[in-house]
Nucleic acid binder design. Structure first.
Lengths: 163, 163
DNA sequence: GTAACTGTACTCGGATATTCCATGTCCGAGTAGGGTTGG
DNA sequence: CCAACCCTACTCGGACATGGAATATCCGAGTACAGTTAC
């Protein structure tokens, strides 16, 4: 019925978030994945794979050929952290409930199968809190916070990509 | 500096929570891991491994020898879901920050290294919401909710373990 | 001089190895209880 | 009959295989620009 675990959140999520911020700072031109990877010494082809997922999710535009690359498909205000997590990790519930109550000698007890599992409910409550927090925060918030913490970061990034 | 991902929450967490509830229902006597496993058709030895961690965390008492097994070391009110998650998964932050800012050509920029990563901060905020929800809920709450949903569950479990 | 064409270099995109961690298993250490034997 | 001893069975506990997913990589498809050539 329910399946509950935590799926691993790959480090690709962190990469993707950084790239979204960098793409915003870099400006409207498309940036090749290799160049984005070079900014943080990430494996270029693997980063490309993560950016593909963002593109499929409609968060980025992908442009082939010379002068191609990736660029933001929406404004930073329209991209929540939840969107990025879902794009990379998939829409599967982080906490899947196996409903192990349905296994074993007591599985046939009628009361079990028609009543939601209290443990799944409790874990889902916690997960929903996590999701709500992610959904509230956007790339624009990250950009703003970074701007306050290190005002020159945007200029440095833009310079690096521009040259 | 920081390392941020989501570590996988093993299904062992779900098993552990179910076992805590079952141990409460079963009464003060120790229950062998094999018998707990049989209740939900779980791999006995592997479940034992998870229960070991709960014992090391002080959530369960482990008793060797005949008539041995595991029993709750605290009252259900004193065991939060967070305690169980930490016991199984370890105390590592679920979201580890790799701080990829410290890599690559811009790593030497002084401003970067002394300022907290905005992305790590945002992700940690979400994770803290998750942890807070887990910390608020206890095994006693699960027991109470299960009792409301299926009043005979406790009796059935006790009977099964007693016989 | 202009325009069409061709070739090249560069980009994404999906199919393919590799590594690592959760999962699952096996055997050893320790213990409590019962049976046995000697007094 | 009683008590001390030993032996067996049962439990946890840590060390050892296995599988699957995340990680990393390679090669093919498509495209835009530049150079070339024909008119």
């Amino acid at each position: 019925m329910f399946n509950v675990y935590f799926v691993q959140m790959s480090r690709g999520v962190e990469w993707a978030l950084h790239c979204c911020v960098l793409l915003h700072w870099a400006g409207p031109d498309a940036i090749p994945s290799a160049k984005l990877a070079g900014y943080h010494d990430l494996p270029p082809v693997y980063l490309n794979k993560q950016l593909q997922r963002l593109a499929q999710a409609g968060i980025l535009d992908s442009i082939s050929g010379p002068n191609g690359g990736f660029r933001l498909a929406k404004s930073p205000e329209q991209i929540s952290l939840m969107d990025v997590v879902v794009a990379i990790e998939g829409a599967t519930e982080a906490f899947r409930c196996l409903d192990i109550r349905a296994q074993g000698p007591t599985a046939s007890d009628a009361a079990n199968t028609h009543v939601p599992c209290s443990i799944a409910t409790a874990m889902r409550r916690a997960e929903n809190a996590w999701r709500a927090s992610l959904a509230q925060q956007t790339i624009a918030d990250i950009v703003a916070a970074s701007g306050r913490a290190a005002p020159d970061a945007a200029v440095r990034a833009r310079t690096w990509f521009g040259g």
